[in-house]
């Protein structure tokens, strides 16, 4: 079985995002960029399946600027076998990403696609679900355990009420939650090997997909500043404030 793992280059999770002065988006000039953390978990899960003999090949795919090659090299250094970059400097919305991924799936015929549940830049949480719909494949989202059982997989999902386990037939879509695994970091020998692995650069046109945006961003603003809290002396005072100041009880 082949596993396809889409990875996205996003603003690093340690960076404090700043809004551009003209409020059109987040300022990415000279900002550290990294692989989306949920995608790292997806790569790790694919590698573990391969190490367990349940997969033969892992293909990492990214859609983004030329610098996303670096993100793909990270996936290759972790243990992916080859990579595809669909290069574009445009903003690619989740539906366009899902359509491109469908085209890659049609070409590569993977048995499993493991995606991050969402990217930490736009937090859309849509691509995996849209891809499942476009392909007509079963999906196990927010996975905290993925087990290969017979011809299918069992996915334990983190849902509001607790854990839900679903059985899926293959081919299938999985999106990863935080607790699925702890991604490894690349060793030096593997970074060196990654340089020699195959990385194909394509365009959206190669796959015949129209990626022009359908959404318009009106304005991006910083979240409202949080004001400091106060300490109350008695329960009576607390109740009084909740009733009369906050108006929540």
């Amino acid at each position: 079985m082949k596993i396809l793992v889409p990875v996205k280059r996003v603003i690093d999770y340690n960076v404090k995002a700043r809004v551009k002065a003209d409020k059109t988006g987040v300022d990415l000039a000279n900002v550290k960029m990294s692989m989306n953390p949920f995608d790292e978990i997806a790569v790790e899960e694919a590698i573990r399946k391969k190490e367990a003999g349940q997969a033969e090949e892992i293909i990492a795919v990214s859609i983004g600027p030329a610098q996303a090659q670096e993100t793909l090299r990270t996936a290759l250094a972790m243990g992916a076998d080859r990579a595809i970059l669909i290069q574009t400097d445009d903003i690619v919305e989740p539906l366009a990403v899902a359509k491109l991924l469908k085209a890659v799936v049609d070409a590569e015929q993977p048995g499993l696609v493991i995606l991050g549940k969402q990217a930490i830049d736009d937090d859309s949480n849509q691509t995996g679900q849209m891809l499942a719909a476009l392909l007509g494949w079963p999906q196990g989202t927010f996975a905290s355990i993925v087990k290969v059982v017979g011809d299918g997989i069992e996915v334990t999902r983190e849902v509001d009420g607790g854990l839900e386990t679903v059985a899926l037939t293959l081919p299938a879509i999985v999106t990863t939650d935080l607790r699925l695994n702890e991604p490894r970091y690349a060793s030096l020998p593997n970074i060196m090997k990654a340089k020699k692995k195959q990385l194909d650069v394509k365009t959206a046109a190669d796959y015949g997909v129209d990626i022009s945006p359908r959404l318009k961003t009106l304005k991006v603003e910083e979240p409202a500043k949080r004001a400091g809290g106060i300490k109350v002396k008695t329960i009576e005072e607390l109740v009084d404030k909740l009733k009369n100041e906050a108006g929540v009880i």
Partner: peptide, 14 residues
């Protein structure tokens, strides 16, 4: 270079 960047990042993670 991307390779130097990879070295730095991997060490930061380690």
């Amino acid at each position: 270079t991307p390779e130097q960047e990879a070295v730095r990042r991997a060490i930061e993670k380690l």
